[in-house]
Amino acid sequence: MKKIIHRAADRGIQDHGWLKAAHSFSFANYHDPAKVHFGLLRVLNDDIVAPGMGFGTHGHDNMEIVTIPLKGTLAHKDSLGSVGNIEYGEVQIMSAGKGIQHSEYNGSSSEAVNLLQIWVFPKERNIEPRYDQIHYDLVAANNSFLTVVSPIKSEKTMWINQDAFFSLGTFDADSKASYKIQHPGNGAYVFFIEGQGVLDDTVLANRDAVGVYDTEELEIDFKKNSKVLIIEIPMQ
């Protein structure tokens, strides 16, 4: 197993007043030549958006964009006609394809919204843009990983235009969990949303991450109640 450790304190921190962002990879005004991407994972932004504020209409193309709210409500509108809110317990994906316009705003006038926005390079370029959103239940899958995004079309996961898998899990203190790589040759970016655990002698806590590759399986020993996101991603 080979690994790259990204500590929470080493992320690029941007404070725009209405937006507080922590960038795991180079983004906007933050650039670190050693942290541009992990395989085909290009962006992982941990954003806190003030009440009533947000991102006005803007465009994307040829990128798979996954949004995971951690707290609060995010209001979404796009050029495909998709309008609605996404909240904790839901995941959204946009295949930007040959081009899409969208806006994202905090759907609350009184509470901040905290979200993860993740960009993955696509497998096929210039496809028709697409939007999808699902609800997931981590309570039913406690102490195990639940796949919510997959390249395999099914009713239980959202489809992504890449050989990538997104899995979420909540874990009790003093429990263990393993994750098997689902596509040969993929790596896995393990992001500790909260809690504490040990992966291959590396201690990970709130917002720490480790990218692992050249392995078929990884195991995490949880020291505290934890919530974890695994992004399994092609390395080339």
Rank of each mutant, 00 (worst) to 15 (best):
N186I: 06
E87D: 15
S82Q: 14
L80I: 05
Y136R: 06
G107F: 12
I118A: 01
Q162A: 11
L138Y: 05
V66Y: 11
A141T: 15
R125I: 11
V120S: 04
N114C: 12
N142P: 09
H60G: 09
V190H: 05
G84I: 10
S110M: 12
G107R: 03
T157D: 06
E87R: 11
G81Q: 00
F166A: 01
V83Q: 15
A75Q: 13
F165W: 07
G72Y: 01
F166V: 04
G99V: 07
A188K: 00
F145C: 04
E124Q: 13
I181L: 03
S154K: 11
A75H: 14
I65L: 01
I118H: 02
E87W: 03
E111Y: 10
Q92I: 04
G169F: 06
K153F: 09
R125T: 12
Y88Q: 15
S109C: 04
A164C: 15
F165R: 01
V91I: 15
S154D: 12
Y105R: 09
G185H: 06
A141H: 10
P151H: 09
K176C: 08
K123T: 09
L74C: 07
L70C: 12
R130Y: 14
F165I: 11
G107A: 13
G89C: 13
R130H: 14
P129M: 06
Y179H: 10
A164Y: 11
F145W: 02
V120E: 02
A140L: 15
H76C: 05
F165L: 05
S79M: 06
G169H: 03
D132E: 14
Y136G: 02
V148A: 02
S178L: 04
K156I: 05
G59P: 12
V83W: 08
K77M: 07
Q92F: 12
H58W: 03
E64S: 07
D172G: 01
T67R: 01
A177T: 01
Y105M: 14
I127E: 00
N142A: 13
L80E: 03
N106H: 11
S95V: 09
Q92M: 14
L74P: 01
F121M: 13
V113H: 04
R125G: 12
F171P: 01
S144I: 05
Q133Y: 08
F166R: 00
H183K: 14
V113G: 11
Q182F: 03
G185Y: 08
W119V: 02
G84H: 14
E124G: 06
K156F: 12
K180Y: 10
N161A: 08
Y179G: 03
D172M: 03
G72A: 10
N161G: 06
S108E: 13
T170D: 13
